[in-house]
């Protein structure tokens, strides 16, 4: 049994705007073990990024506020730390990489300067040692002629290479936790394959825990040990990866799986979209947030928001009617056909 690295309890994040209070994260609870890879799946506005930015204490306040919650990292509540103490953790024990490698790097500083900054600051290395370590890091993410490229500026790198530089920076202080916020979304598939390949290898070598935020169920299927599915600021389903794909028990998860065409799908059949739109985060419904788009909805769903309920081994779903979902799911997912072989 591994140790719990990160324990998030009942975390809520809100933003005060002119139109009212935006309820971005509405009571999120999950735990992450050392060395584990957690996938967080959801669409825009589902709270997947905001919840992780809250963990990193990167939410601007105001307009943001955190009305409740605990973020225990190695037993220490990050929400109670001073900004100075948090700075010791951020980039050191917990690192984060972002979606857009174009804007996350400073265009007027060389790559070398940007990588060595964290090494000098957090690990107290001198210039020479930091530079040597920076070159090693670039080599680790497969950047050719690493030594020479330290003196280049971000615009001299392609998108995929910039994202690899971001990963190198994220890993520079050997963090115990790496939070990756859609790190491959802006990249082409062949470059995405390079990046996920590097991350998988490094995770194995360095033994760090990873939280991988994405909207792409395909990317996460090959990476994560466990997946949280988020919708309107709630975790609506969580399970081990294989269990989640084989046995989804929340109508939204089923809907997501039914919405995406699969490369290996030889049936030219209609997709099953999720009708309608997600709810307005300012005027959240009283009951289940997915009720308006759900094919399984009942009166109870409209009146009472379901909590996460245990529906199997290490498998929780926030749906009153998960048994009905279980019964009708395969029909929705067109799953009676034999699976063709992989490429």
């Amino acid at each position: 049994m591994s140790n719990v690295l990160l324990d998030v309890r009942n975390l809520r994040t809100e933003f005060v705007t002119q139109d009212g209070v935006v309820h971005a994260v509405n009571g999120v609870t999950f735990a992450l073990e050392e060395g584990e890879t957690l996938g967080v799946v959801g669409e825009s506005g589902s709270g997947k990024s905001v919840s992780m930015l809250t963990v990193m204490r990167l939410i601007p306040m105001p307009p943001g506020r955190i009305p409740s919650g605990e973020v225990l990292f190695q037993g220490q509540d990050l929400l109670k730390l001073s900004s100075e103490e948090m700075r010791q953790i951020r980039g050191n024990k917990i690192a984060m990489i972002f979606q857009d490698p174009m804007t996350s790097l400073n265009p007027v500083l060389t790559i070398g300067t940007q990588i060595t900054e964290a090494l000098e600051l957090h690990l107290g290395m001198n210039k020479e040692k930091a530079r040597k370590r920076a070159a090693e890091l670039l080599k680790m993410v497969n950047i050719p002629e690493a030594e020479r490229r330290l003196d280049d500026y971000p615009h001299q790198f392609s998108g995929g290479m910039r994202q690899r530089v971001m990963i190198a920076m994220g890993l520079s202080c050997s963090p115990q936790l790496l939070i990756a916020d859609e790190p491959t979304t802006a990249l082409d598939v062949t470059i995405q394959a390079q990046i996920t390949d590097i991350i998988k290898r490094l995770k194995h070598e360095l033994g760090m825990a990873i939280i991988w935020i994405t909207h792409d169920l395909g990317v996460i299927a090959g990476l994560a040990d466990r997946i949280n599915v988020m919708y309107s600021g709630y975790i609506v389903e969580t399970a081990q990866t294989k269990e989640l794909f084989a046995n989804p028990l929340h109508p939204y998860t089923v809907g997501l799986l039914g919405s995406i065409p699969r490369l290996d799908d030889n049936q030219k059949e209609k997709l099953t979209p999720i009708e309608g739109l997600p709810p307005d985060l300012v005027n959240m419904p009283i009951g289940c947030p997915f009720y308006a788009r759900c094919a399984f909805g009942t009166d109870k769903c409209q009146q009472e928001n379901p909590p996460l309920m245990s529906v199997g081994v290490k498998h929780w779903s926030a749906c009153w009617n998960y048994e009905a979902v279980r019964a009708k799911r395969d029909e929705i997912l067109r799953r009676n056909v034999a699976q063709p072989a992989a490429v």
Binding site: T190, G218, A221, L257, R262, L263
Partner: peptide
Amino acid sequence: ALLSAVPIPDPIIE
């Protein structure tokens, strides 16, 4: 290469 790089939403196949 392009086909092999496209992820398939199925952990067992992946």
